[in-house]
């Protein structure tokens, strides 16, 4: 038993990926001002995760972590239903990131959106 444990432990540690590979990005330029038409959305790269920037009908910008809280699929903006939609299991979120319907158990993580010059900057609340 001890022999098995002494052989198994290094193997278990070996297959555990080293920590610190995740990007520590806290803000990113998600788009240029005017790039996004009203009632549309855009997926952008936030570190190693996808984020979603939405320009709603009234021209208000909002951004969220685009990883669905159900099973990790990447959500998209549905311009017909005017909500955020996940194609995997039909989960729907409103434009505040709250769950409207479907299986997602939690709201989407909301990001801050600021305009700096020509850039739309999205940042995480620290």
């Amino acid at each position: 038993m001890a022999l098995l444990a002494s052989a198994g432990y290094p193997i278990l540690r070996y297959i555990t990926p080293p920590k610190g590979t995740e990007s520590a990005a806290t803000s990113v330029v998600a788009a240029k001002v005017g790039e996004l038409a009203r009632n549309s959305g855009k997926i952008f790269k936030f570190g190693d995760k996808p984020g979603i920037l939405i320009n709603d009908l009234s021209g208000e910008l909002s951004a969220f972590n685009a990883v669905c809280t159900h099973l990790n699929c990447t959500v998209q903006y549905d311009p017909e239903a005017k909500c955020i939609w996940c194609a995997c299991h039909n989960g729907r979120f409103d434009l505040k990131g709250r769950v409207i319907s479907g299986p997602p158990p939690r709201p989407l993580e909301k990001y801050n959106v600021n305009i700096r010059g020509e850039d739309i900057v999205v940042s995480k609340s620290v």
Partner: peptide, 22 residues
């Protein structure tokens, strides 16, 4: 970094579990 497209499915023998979770 693309949205998950409609019609994403695993292999057919996992589908019943995938659909149940829906």
């Amino acid at each position: 970094f693309m949205p998950t497209p409609l019609g994403i499915k695993p292999e057919w023998y996992f589908l019943w579990m995938f659909q149940t979770l829906k």
